[in-house]
Amino acid sequence: MIPLLTDGVPRRGLKLLAAFSVALLAAPLVASDYLLTVLILVLYFAYVGQAWNIMMGFAGQLSLGHALYVGLGAYAAAALYVHFGVGPWLGLWVAMASAAAAGATIGFLAFRFGVGGVYFAILTIAFAEFARIGFDHWSWLGGSAGLFLPVANYGGNDILTLRGSPTMFYYVMLAMTASAFVLCHVLLRSRIGYYWLAIRESADAAQALGIDIFRCKMVAVVVSAAMTSLGGVLFAFYYNNLFPEQVFHISRSIELILGPIIGGIGTLVGPIVGAFLLTTLAETLSEIMRAVGIDLPGIKQVFYGFCLLGVVMFLPDGVWPPLGRWLGLGREEGDRGSGEGKR
């Protein structure tokens, strides 16, 4: 197991990774409450970004509706808890199953004809919007008035029902992010991982080499959707309230993909680096605005917009590839290389 994980990773990278892990593990000991909530947000975006990256970064399929899977996961687990008292550890299976089913449906509609690209991206948005409006009218789930979980009792941490302090959520989120990282690392070095990269680079050539493109793309959607839904489960139990208008909104989907794009699509470290950069910058911006006393509701999104614009225009491979080279870590497997790939 261990050699499987460390194989082909530069020594220096392992050392940096270890140092980084220790820092993250120790963070709650020194961090203020505010900083901890920011870190939870960072980890959340790193996690869902990693999940999205499987589809876009590995298999080359652009999804702009990942809020759908977050929302389905959140609502499935929350509804089971609120209505039947079923805890999140059982609920997450239902969450994953429903997100996977939704992903499979979208994938089937789009990939059946080999028309990925635009069609697929639009379909993903359409389904997220469909869910947003549908859930708005689904009174059993609270409709547009929202679904509320009994508010957490900060007195004790109950890991079984995920009721507890931010510190507990921090460690759960950290465990999830670390698992996602390891899972993606393993996936990239597995048969399906190589198949995904091949499809991303040239679907025609991949097919000529015996790869069942449709099946591989379906696997990518299903795995990515199921992983993303787990982020939703945690989201529900952390925030304790769910509104379709917020959870499924297209801006949630966009927010979610910014991390990996800015960090570096298709890289393992990119989503994490991107989430750190973006969330800390956005929080700093909010703090400054608050200090100056200006309240502009859209300013954070405008900032996101310019970040995205800047990265897409000037750093098409994201921040990590050049940063990684600068740290002397060289090229990572699954990296987009020179970026002059497609077309």
Binding site: Y195, L197, E201, D204, A206, A208, G210, E333, K342
Partner: peptide
């Protein structure tokens, strides 16, 4: 092979050939 070559441009030579070899082998 394709007349107009279609390499997996972003992958290494090793990875390119490996993808093909996976068809013939049961393990990576």
């Amino acid at each position: 092979t394709f007349q107009l070559v279609k390499p997996f441009a972003g992958l290494s030579v090793m990875e390119n050939v490996l993808v093909g070899a996976l068809n013939a082998c049961s393990s990576v």
